[in-house]
């Protein structure tokens, strides 16, 4: 494409760090858009991106989270399209981004399939992943779509659906057209996009990649949600019993594991996608618990 510059949006900062790393490796100029709110709660990743030589631009508009960062990245792209490529971080946006990002992410499922066959000699019974825009979930699920495995996507239930402070698009949204694609959207009766809430920046988003509703309608994937409190409990549990600190996003998937595992027999296998590490969330969780680091 002979473009000299890449831009990306980020919520949790994971995609921003990945884009910044890639850009540093091949010597491209890199600018990352991030909502003010997310820069605060994911300060570690902001530091990492800057360390990698990326310019991190604060987006103080709207709800100051992921959706606003995408708006701003799209505005940048419209302006600088001749010199700049937009590295969209999830399975959303105008075509072909949703399928392109899915194909890149599908490495997760391909590797998971190979590994589980190596270790267990059979495919799992359940696949569980958290769903913000939905790229880690599609990435895991895609290699297993035709295998008849139970797949569960876990959205952010925030403070509970009834409070309106959540990012559960299936539980609380309706069909809309937003940022270049048609999917479930948290919106009011006039088609304006509603503010969202989640303890995790990466799930705090008003819409969901359009392939998710498609697979849900076909009965291939089920969707549920976990609240902030359930995710925080899972975050602590995995740290304690396995010595692995998961990202708060992935902790939503773990919360679902905690709900269903006790009901299953010991022979059943659950694969859960730990899509991110929790170092970036330690300060944020400490703040929530009222601990000063």
């Amino acid at each position: 494409m002979s473009k000299q510059r890449v831009i990306a949006e980020t919520g949790a900062g994971q995609h921003g760090v990945a884009a910044a790393t890639g850009a540093a490796l091949v010597g491209l100029e890199c600018e990352i858009y991030m909502g003010t709110e997310d820069m605060k709660r994911q300060a570690l990743n902001v530091f990492r991106m800057r360390l990698l030589g990326a310019k991190v631009t604060e987006v103080p508009l709207g709800s100051r989270t992921l959706k606003d960062a995408i708006n701003e990245a799209l505005r940048d792209w419209t302006t600088n399209v001749r010199t700049t490529h937009y590295v969209l971080g999830t399975v959303f946006g105008p075509h072909p981004f949703p399928v392109m990002v899915r194909d890149f992410q599908s490495i997760i499922g391909k590797e998971a399939k190979k590994q589980i066959l190596d270790v267990e000699g059979r495919l799992p019974d359940y696949l569980i992943a958290c769903v913000g825009g939905g790229s880690n979930a599609i990435g895991l699920f895609h290699a297993f779509l035709k295998q008849g495995i139970k797949m569960i996507g876990v959205e952010a239930g925030g403070k509970g659906i009834e409070t309106g402070k959540h990012a559960a698009r299936f539980a609380g949204g309706s069909i809309g057209v937003f940022q270049g694609c048609k999917s479930y959207l948290l919106q009011d009766d006039n088609g304006n996009v509603l503010g969202t809430h989640s303890v995790s920046a990466g799930l705090d988003y008003a819409s969901i990649g359009p392939e998710h509703p498609y697979l849900r309608d076909k009965g291939i994937i089920q969707y549920t949600y976990a609240t902030d409190d359930e995710a925080l409990a899972a975050f602590e549990l995995l740290s304690k019993i396995e010595g692995i600190t998961p990202a708060l996003e992935s902790a939503h998937a773990l919360a679902e594991v905690m709900k269903i595992a006790p009901k299953l027999s010991k022979e059943e296998i659950i694969v859960v996608n730990l899509s991110g590490r929790g170092d970036k969330d330690v300060q944020h969780v400490a703040r929530i618990k009222g601990i000063e680091l």
């Binding site: 809309g176 057209v177 937003f178 959207l185 919106q187 009766d189 006039n190 088609g191 304006n192 996009v193």
Partner: peptide, 8 residues
């Protein structure tokens, strides 16, 4: 924008 029209 389109979404308000779509919703309407």
């Amino acid at each position: 924008y389109y979404n308000p029209v779509f919703k309407y």
